[in-house]
Each structure stands twice: as structure tokens, then as C-alpha cells.
Design a protein around this nucleic acid. Sequence first.
RNA 1: GCCCCCAUCGUCUAGUCAGGUCCAGGACACCAGCCUUUCAAGCUGGGUACACGGGUUCGAAUCCCGUUGGGGGUACCA
Length: 469
Amino acid sequence: MIPPRVRFAPSPTGDLHVGGVRAALFNWLYARRHGGTFVLRVEDTDRERSTPESTALILEGMSWLGMTPDEGPFFQSERGDLYRARLTQLLDMGGAYRCWCTKDDLDAKRAEAERRKSRYGYDGTCRGVTEAPSPGAPFVVRAKLPQDGEVLIDDMVKGRVVLRNDQFDDFILARQDGSPVYNFTVVVDDIDMGITHVVRGDDHLNNTPKQVHLYRLLGADLPRFAHLPMVHGPDGKKLSKRHGAASILAFREMGYLPETMLSFLARLGWSHGDQEEFTVEELQTLFDLDGINPAAAVFDHKKLEWMNGRRMREMSTPELLARARPFIERAQIDPDLPWVPRALEALQPRANTLAALAEGLSLFAGRGPVAYDAKAAAKFLKAESRALLTELAAALEATRPFAAAAIEETVRTFLATRELKMKHIGQPARVALVGGTASPSLFDVMEIFGRDVTLARLRAAAAWSGPEA
RNA sequence: GCCCCCAUCGUCUAGUCAGGUCCAGGACACCAGCCUUUCAAGCUGGGUACACGGGUUCGAAUCCCGUUGGGGGUACCA
């Protein structure tokens, strides 16, 4: 097979969203799998809506995910000469014509069609017109398409799709100001860049016949098409900002790993038997277009979370620290504090995102007195427990080293001597140490705090005099 | 309205192209149990699905038709 050339062609009109990322991913993986080339092309022909900020966001998202293009980024806004040349070519050969219809006229016709509940399509008023209605009157350029017959698309995901030519009209190639429009630039560029496989969302399926005609008009070979199913939100509609996080960078902020996003997104619409998780390397060797499910998929945040947690749990502490560093700093904790690695280790099975991990760290950040959760204190810091806490503090004075194993030994002996169980001291001590009822193992917590803080907190709890009120 | 796409547990999916091994398998979520000082993690177990109706066939989740449902498109957006 000749090495494929594929492209990701986002338009910079907002965030790089999850659906776009998946399209990029499938293109990128397809190129990697078959030794092809992945091209990034920014489709910024809509000057009204395109922004440099959005372009920056796209580039940043791509680089965060490690999907570096082999060629590009190219910008359509910089390729005007090419489009003008092709437009002239089309005009000269009769594949396109000037149209002087005004926007108002068109809008009126569209409104009328809507009223009659029939399909609107440009009626071809200017098809045979060669003279401007008045000298210098503004015009758009339209493609001259066959009005009957049909186009057959042999889609690699959807299979054979037949569209009748009377379903689409002579669409606009260039606006009144001469600027080219999507359906035109996409074909010109895909031809110029030698794109062999057009892999994109199936919201473009209806555009494809128009584009096929352009390929023919321009005398170019057709690429293979692969239309990907959409990614939906929980309500079954195309995923968007309305569904909360749709921007890929938002997932970075939430503390998801880029490799989790890739593995998860790949599994949304594509599968390799029952395998749930993939490394990037695996994806690059296993991925292919024939594994794509033609049905739309719902983005399942819960599963993403689970998947991310699994990856975090597989990491070594130093790696976890390195990855979580920015999040720890953001939580206003110095990542280089000596107790941090130990705390990270204790928190690891309890966090599914780097942000949650950093947040968990704040449990250990304060070394002064703790504020007790009212309900927890009322329930676990009763007189009996407080007396026990005083004794435990005394017992812990002599523990050497002050590390989890030795601490556990001390505590167990302490309990055994009194014929008590862990449940008698567990929650009271936890409330004393962290103020609440949930935390990593007490022994770990004590080690992380160190002897001084541990004893101080145990004794402070023992001296607690009940709710203020 | 018209056109196109899609249809297996709540969700992601295997199985569909090459019909039998599927009274449908895995995963997330959920529930229960175990572990246990809490919360997690981990382990074990459980319930839940071939949208419906017709065909074709000895036999259909798998093929065909229709219905219904969902999604997308219908711009001087991409």
C-alpha cells in the first residue's frame, strides 16, 4: 500500500473540542499505522469567526496530546493565490459561473421555500447569465453542478452511500469579496497536498458529493473517504460546550493525563476486540479504519475518570510527583517539601485526577491546629475516646523510628494491652489528626505529619471541650 | 419539510461484512459480599441489552424490506 497522506483540518473558531481531537487522533493513528504522513491544516477562511487565540488553543491542545503533525500547520488564509488560480481555472472551463443574485433575493426565496415546507436550493437564475446586470455589480462565484444523476460514495466507515444530485445546488465557491469558501478550499487543498484519505466527522457526509464534483471538475483523482460517527453528550446530541467540558484543554486543567485521553477517545467509536486500554504505541500499531463502529458514541465521563485513575496508580512516586507538580503548585503547596512523596504514595489509590491528588495533599499542608468537622467530632471525640487519645499520645512518644510500620506496631500493642480493637481508636484518632472521617491509613498519616504534629493534634483533640454552642 | 447516517445492557463495546460454537461476551457505572481503622484501591459475585414488525433460511443479533426512534445536513460557517 502506498503511504497514506491524511490531514486534520480544524477551523479556529473556538476551543479544540473533544470531537475534533478524536478526528485528529484517528487521522494521526492511521498515518502512524501505515507509515503515512499527517498534515495539519488550519481552515481559517471565515474571517469573521476565526481568531488567532483559537489557533493557539488548537496548536497547544495538539502538542499536549503529542500529536505532532508531519507537515504544517498550514493556514488557508495564506493560500489565497492558489484558490484564485483554481477559481479562474474553473470559470474559464465553465465549471463555475458568476452569480449576481443579491443576498436579499436569496433570503426571500429561502423564506418562501420554508413557508411551503419544501427544500431550498439555489434556483440557477444566473447559470446562463454572462453579463453583469450593471457595470461593476458585485457577484459570487458558484460551482456548476450536474442537476440529475447521482454520486456514489464508497465510504470506508459507512459503506456505499448514494446521494442524488438534485439534492444539492450550485453552491458558492467564492464570496462577493472574492474570498473562497470551505467546500472549495477543502478540495483545492486536499488535491494540492496530495491527501489520499479524507477522515472526518460524518457531519460532512452531505458535503462530500459537492466536493466529489469539484474533484472531477478539477481533473483530480478522488481520495478515499471515511466518515467518523459523532461524539455525543449524555443527552444524545453532538457534544458541545453545553455539556460542560468539551474543550480538550479543560481536561488538562482537570488533571487528566494526555495518554488517558488518547486511549479513551480511541475507544470511542473504535475497538480492538475487548481491549479497554491502550498505550500510544499500541494504538499506533493496532489502529485501523475497519475497526470503526458506524454509530455515534456518548462521551462517558465516569469511564474516563476510572481510566485515568488506573494510569495514575501504575505510576512510580517520582513520576507521579513530576506529573502532578503544576497541580501541587496551583494548590499552593511546595512540591519539594520532604513529606510530599510519602503523602502522594498514600493518596495514589484515592485520586483519579492529578487535580484531585493535589487537593488531597492539602490534607497534610497545615501543621497547626485542625478544624474539626462538627458531626465527626461530636460522634468520635467523646470523653472515653479522648482519654484514650491522651494515652495513645504518650505511647507514641517512644516510637522509633516514627514511621508507619513502627507506629502500627505501637498502636497494635497499645490496643492489645487494653483488649481493645482498632475500631475503638481509629476514627477518634483520624478526626484528631485531619479533622474529618476520611483519610489514608492512620499510620501513614502519622508518619507524614511526624511525631510533633501527631502528638500535638492527638492531645488537642483530647482536650477538646465539645461544640461551642 | 426534504436528504443522509445510525440502531446489542444506563454508557463504551465484542459478535454483524464470510448466518449455527450467542437462551449474547468484556468494560464503566450500579448493587451485594470479602478485605478493613475511615475513605478509596483491590478481589469475588449479581442484575440489566440484540428497538419493533414482516420476510429469506433447517437455523438470524447477524441477510432483505418496512416501521419507530435517535442523530446529522439543508449558509456569501466549517
